[in-house]
Write a protein that binds this DNA or RNA. Sequence first.
RNA 1: GUUCACGUAGCUCAGUUGGAUAGAGUGUUGCCCUCCGAAGGCAAAGGUCACGAGUUCGACUCUCGUCGUGGACACCA
Length: 569
Amino acid sequence: MYLEDLQNVLVKAIKEAGYDLTPSVILSNRPDLCDYQCDDCFKLAKMYGESPVVIGNKIVSCLQGLENFSDYFKEVTFANPGFINLTLSDTFISKYVRLMEEKEKFNFKPLEKKELFYLDYGGANIAKPLHVGHLRPAIIGESLKRILKFYGHSTLADAHLGDFGLQIGEVIYAILRDFKDVPVDDIQFDLAYLDKVYPEMSKKCKEDEHLLATCQEITKELQDGNEVYDKLWKQICDVSMIQVKELYDFLGVDFDYWYGESECFPIIPVMKEVLMKQGIVKESEGAKIIEVKKDTDKIEVPPFILEKSNGASLYSTTDLASIYERVERHHPDHILYVADSRQSLHFEQVFRASEKAGFIPYSSLKHIGFGTINGKDGKPFKTRSGETVKLKDLLKEVETAFLSLKETNKEMGQEDIDKIVNAIIKFADLQNSLDKNYIFDTEKFASVVGKTGPYILYTYLRIHKMIKDVTLEDALSSTIYDEYDRALRLKLLEMEKAVTSAVQEYRPHYICEYLYNLCVVANNFYQNNHLQSLTDLQKKNDYIHVLRLTTEVIKTLLDLLAIEIPSVM
RNA sequence: GUUCACGUAGCUCAGUUGGAUAGAGUGUUGCCCUCCGAAGGCAAAGGUCACGAGUUCGACUCUCGUCGUGGACACCA
């Protein structure tokens, strides 16, 4: 809100100077000179064919002539070759800090249009243990959901479990082999069994074409409604879901719908009928396809495959069916897919097919791709023996490393330890920009110093401890006492920008960046201003106001990253 | 082969419509606990922004090319 007000003042001054442009007021990149700056003199110079120096000086003198100048600025200057430097007045800063305290949601501007975002960020597979690869979609998706919701949008989260693919056929094959003398209704197995059998079958099918074909056949029959397979499948789901939910629960990742691909199957025939009527389905090499390439394409975009030559459905089929179903049922404005960047071509095909079929426009569909977690060799992260790392083991490893840092950590309650482990992992992951691969470094994931989740938690707890029992009588005054105080108040105002950017670009790391910077400024304040020894009551009152708001902002933003605050550290 | 993403300090990474002196963390070297928690604060050193052209008053940012890394390229998910 404050930025908009600043901008409006500038609009007026520009008009008064005889020009017409909506300027952009941005955070100063020379904090030694000013708080905010406007660089649009260059643009105006081009538009009006005058020198930016002349234009800038005109605008600056219009600003300086404002009747209520001090409501906004302490100082406005022009700097060569074309910068307008704005230093905000204490009155202005404190006014908006007070509004952040008083108004709902830190005085965020209400949304012009509330939209419904349908988020697909699960991708966990039934019958396979969750591994490192499932970590990023879960925490990025969860964070995006919370950010969108905080911003004012509606969200629906769908786990979209992989529960009807080849891996199920493989596991069913193994069950029938291992329990061949047991009547189907009496077959009982547990999670340990699935954990053992899946890797075994997966390996064997890669080596044995005949076995693979058998498992594919089982998968198809399951999809077609084979009763025996269906019974086993239900049990596989029940057994696996316990672990899947346990892990997601630990990570604070929650879904509105725990749907799997299997849910799409009843819709597939309906969808196919719609597609056939539109006449966009073709036959090619025995398969049913939809052409999705365009003349403007630089790359060869392969056709979307609706049906395999053996009549079976595949990944693309269920994804398109799920779009059809989601649109029919929920009418979302956007569907977001949080999935590995490697799947970008797949989503491109699905999105084009969806648009061609008239389900939902291409522009409403978005694949939020992210890089893979690599080991130090630049290849996907594996254990020493070359296996994918189980998520459970990774979490345990981080916990062990944390506990060994300090003797006293072992005395902490399990709930607090869990929260800190979450903070370590999530902050380490989310602070990277999404599109890059990143290197998994055990040391980094065990670190609690510097730019880490625990640093944020620690900052929060220290400040919270000293102000939690104080009740405030007077509102925050407009006096700013020193540079640390000023820096903290200015930083608090930036919250809106951080969240807005994160929403607009679907990038949680803007929140991390801001959160860390806020904590640095807050720590600075803390180090240089001792609350206890203060005798000036108004100053003490104001400091508590500012610190309290700081803790509230930290807590709110941590929640957007799905990080909870422990009771002690 | 075609194509997409990436290449910024020793290491791990930010850099939000192209703007002034490219920022953090970590590591290294020094300081700061008789005052609210040292998982903290301060300071120093550390850069041909992969390389070469181009567009622009101005390029880490945009365009093209080269090199390097990773990925994708119809019946797997």
